[in-house]
Design a binder for these strands. Structure first.
Length: 423
RNA sequence: GGAGAAAUGGCAGAGUGGUCGAAUGCGGCAGUCUUGAAAACUGUUGAGGGUCACACCUCCGGGGGUUCGAAUCCCUCUUUCUCCGCCA
């Protein structure tokens, strides 16, 4: 959620930046300013009435003590009238505040100046790539065929017990998943992130805090009986641990990591692009989250990108890093780098990580502040990234590491797996 | 599931109808002392809205009520703790 004071001061700049998302925000920003003016003037009116009423109440107390009950009675009448008047104004204030809130909820975050303009993924900018794309032997297979061949992932069983998009991992497939999770968590904790295990269901306030609600309601599974949401990413519970907090600036940055399953309802398209592990309703992910001082968040984002690069380098997977364009940028982000692994047998890139800076957008909803060295309370910056999403990494490994003898295991994973070949 | 107790500033913890946005301690910040640091001492320090700045308004778990006036009384919800029951 954007800050109203920022909108008041930098409206034109914001309109220009939001244009990169393909949005003309002129009208809505003007509405925000107008509604905020109404809110403030109504607030002032209410304050005045209440101030008057408070003064009278104090006088009544004094009069009673003196025993001047008649005078007190007169003042009572007056305060009763003021109370009636304040009720009406108070309702107007609520109305204006709610309208303002509604408007603010519809406006996405302001893209960073590095974000290229553009409507869709074709305008994303490749900023880095690394790793050799292997030349595979004759008869190499996509991962869903490999999964069947080696009996390590069973999609049909998942359909039987739940539905499409809920695979069952088996034997060395399950072990490889577990190895990846442990390896990722180890890499993250070595880099200074503290490991957390968090709830997989969250309440409405949490979903609002990180921006899943109100705009992405349909993308989450909703347990209506208890009004809880299955998390679409560990970002939600982890970031919300700090909701409403006021932290001291010398406690920043705060670095967290956690493994969770992630649940996504999103109705995907059909065909090869969603086959196998490419798109699931439930998948595993290890997430990193940072709470940063505003002056350090840009560097922090670069650091997170380097961290994820390091992991992919160790896994020896061919990958590229994209800077998302305005049209592809998520609602809450100012700047996002996507990581994609090349899936050789499918001959396409698969997104495996998304690293973003949200600046104050989430913090404003979360009321996550820090006490700066000048003694002032300010909104912190939040950032997060996947490190990494499991299924597509697994797909990449299966496809890129396949040989006529079986699937080799990346060297760094062998200690975690306890085997070096799936055959 | 049953019975009882509680929820107050960054933290701990007083406060049972008016002068309480709230004692005290810790922590934070500034200073004195010191070569420097620690200790000690002195001062300062809740949050949000509003204002050029004041004034002023709101906030004592959430919501509602009683009252001229509520942290304080009533209702309700949530959470925590103790005891009992049940159970991985």
């Amino acid at each position: 959620m954007l800050q109203v004071t920022e909108i008041r001061e930098h409206k034109d700049k914001m309109i220009a930046a939001l244009a990169k998302r393909g949005i003309d925000a002129t009208q809505v920003l003007e509405d925000v300013i107008k509604t905020d003016e109404l809110r403030r003037s109504t607030q002032a009116k209410l304050d005045e009435t209440l101030a008057q009423s408070n003064t009278f109440s104090k006088e009544i107390g004094i009069l009673f003590k003196k025993g001047e009950t008649q005078k007190a009675g007169l003042l009572k009448e007056k305060t009763i009238q003021l109370k009636e008047a304040s009720k009406v104004v108070s309702e107007q204030l609520t109305e204006a505040s709610e309208k303002l809130q509604q408007l603010l909820f519809t406006i996405p975050n302001i893209p960073n100046e590095l974000v290229p303009a553009g409507n869709d993924e074709t305008n994303n900018e490749e900023v880095f790539h690394e790793g050799e794309i292997p030349v595979l032997a004759e008869g190499s297979l996509p991962h869903w065929e490999l999964a069947k061949k080696y009996d390590i992932i069973n999609f049909e069983l998942g359909v039987k017990i739940t539905g499409a998009g809920f695979p069952v991992y088996k034997g060395k497939g399950a072990r490889l998943q577990r190895a990846l999770i442990a390896y990722f968590l180890d890499k993250n904790t070595e880099a200074g992130y503290t490991e957390y295990q968090v709830p997989h269901l969250v309440n409405e306030a949490s979903a609002l805090g990180t921006g899943q609600l109100p705009d992405k309601e349909g993308q989450m599974y909703h347990a209506t009986e208890d009004d809880l949401y299955l998390i679409p990413t560990a970002e939600v519970p982890i970031t919300n641990m700090f909701r409403g907090d006021l932290v001291n600036s010398n406690n920043l940055p705060i670095l967290c990591t956690g493994y969770t399953p992630c649940f996504r309802r999103e109705a995907g398209s059909y065909g090869a692009h969603v086959r196998g592990l490419n798109r699931l309703h439930q998948f595993d992910k290890v997430e990193i989250v940072r709470i940063e001082h505003p002056e350090k968040s840009a560097d922090a984002l670069d650091g997170m990108v380097e961290h994820v690069k390091d992991i992919l380098r160790e896994l020896k997977l061919p990958y590229r890093v994209l800077r998302l364009c305005g049209g592809d940028l998520g609602f809450t982000a100012t700047l996002t780098y996507d990581f994609e692994v090349f899936s050789t047998a499918q001959d396409r890139w698969l997104e495996i990580s998304s690293v973003s800076n949200f600046e104050t957008f989430q913090a404003n909803r979360l009321k996550l502040r820090f006490k700066d060295t000048d003694g002032k309370n300010k909104l912190a910056h939040t950032l997060n990234g996947s490190s990494l999403a499991l299924p597509r990494v697994l797909a990449g490994i299966l496809e890129n590491y396949q040989t006529p003898d079986g699937i080799k295991i990346p060297k760094v994973l062998i200690p975690y797996c306890g085997f070096d070949l799936i055959k």
